[in-house]
Design a binder for these strands. Structure first.
Lengths: 103, 103
DNA sequence: CTAACCTACAACCGAATGGTTGTAGATAGC
DNA sequence: GCTATCTACAACCATTCGGTTGTAGGTTAG
């Protein structure tokens, strides 16, 4: 999933399909690369669960799955939590009045 | 930066160095791969600014830079914000009482 | 029906990744 | 001083990635 977000084009696709659905060909028109290349990017996002497709006539409409974004976000929140607990421990050590050095 | 977090070993390294410093060799002992491979992973994290090194004797101590994690997190928060504004627009449309259809 | 359009998928290519081994330079411990 | 340890870096290899082109199948518009 982080891998899916590691590419700038794919992050841009996600920002576009968050507010509304886009067809694959409409997306392809936005980037200086072939239709097939954009199609592959969408496929990567889809495999990561960040995006899903819905058939509408001859078009394939792409929309975002915000829950997947939230899952990625929670990993980073976890990092933040680990960091905070370290800070707390560090604070305790500073506050600790030389415990254990006395007989 | 997302690229740096896209590898499981690198994410694990980050979780280890968040609470405390680790030497590169100590990290290398934790994974079923060569020292050089772990060294490369640390280099990737360092290039992404997620981690920094500090010399201590013959060891190189690795520590996390939480601000970089926060920067990655803010990208995801931005996604969340776009999503929310879409939800608001959607809510407005539902609340709208057939505006404009009257002469 | 036919032409235009949207999509899927395979084959290919150069560059980057993630791994290896090997060599060499500092530093610490005895 | 010698040796073991920690690190840096280069060279190499298989795989993956991001891109291309080309072919084929559905679907819509006229």
């Amino acid at each position: 999933m982080f891998h899916a977000l590691a590419d700038a084009t794919r992050r841009d696709i996600v920002t576009r399909v968050l507010p509304r659905e886009w067809s694959v060909s409409a997306l392809a028109r936005e980037y200086p690369m072939s239709f097939a290349a954009v199609q592959k990017h969408v496929a990567v996002l889809e495999r990561a669960g960040l995006v899903s497709k819905r058939r509408h006539g001859r078009e394939q409409l792409v929309r975002a799955d915000i829950d997947a974004v939230r899952r990625a976000s929670s990993v980073l929140d976890h990092f933040e939590a680990i960091w905070r607990s370290r800070m707390e421990r560090f604070g305790e050590l500073l506050a600790e009045p030389e415990k254990g050095t006395d007989p």
